[in-house]
Amino acid sequence: MPKRPQKPCNAQSCNTLTRNARYCDDHAHLDKPWSGRKGSGRGGRPWRRLRDQVLRRDHFICQCDECRAQDRIRPAHEVDHIVPVAEGGTDDPSNLRAINHDCHEMKTQHESKAGIARRSVQNA
């Protein structure tokens, strides 16, 4: 069966050819529902502006607890809620920080496991 023809990535100013549905591998995260596309629950222009403000404030450097404790400098491309929204956190800039993608994944997994443990204790 012939391969799907390549087409340009849909990300702004990306000319990479891809066989994926919409985005190249570097921009595949933009196809996720929370990426800020119109119609998604989070995102839109207000969130993008706030996100850009936080990234500039933190100089595009990861501000996670582990990186700061180890004086490690990693580039940040995402914004993280220090206190998760599910636990009462807000979108106030004082509750947001720039974070590296890998650090954000680890923090999210840790929070998810803690939430599951908390629910199991409450239901016991």
Rank of each mutant, 00 (worst) to 15 (best):
A124D: 13
I61A: 11
C103R: 00
I82D: 00
Q53T: 10
C67Q: 03
D80R: 00
N100M: 06
L55E: 05
T108M: 08
V83L: 15
N123M: 13
H27M: 07
L55S: 05
V83D: 10
R57Q: 11
W47H: 15
M1K: 11
D26T: 10
D65A: 15
H101F: 13
Q6H: 09
V121T: 14
Q12S: 14
M1N: 08
T18H: 02
H110F: 04
D25L: 14
R49G: 08
R72K: 12
D80A: 05
C24T: 04
E105S: 09
S94T: 12
A21E: 15
G44C: 04
W34T: 01
D26N: 13
S94D: 15
T18P: 01
A28L: 12
S35W: 01
R56S: 13
I73V: 14
G89H: 06
N95P: 13
V85E: 04
H81C: 02
R37D: 05
N20H: 09
I116A: 13
E111M: 02
K107A: 13
G43N: 11
D58K: 03
D26A: 15
A28Y: 11
V121W: 07
G44R: 03
G36N: 01
V83M: 15
G88L: 14
P2E: 14
R4P: 03
E66H: 14
L96C: 02
S94Q: 13
V121L: 11
K113R: 04
N20Q: 10
M1G: 15
M1V: 11
A69K: 09
P8S: 12
G41T: 12
H29L: 12
Y23K: 00
C64P: 00
E87Y: 05
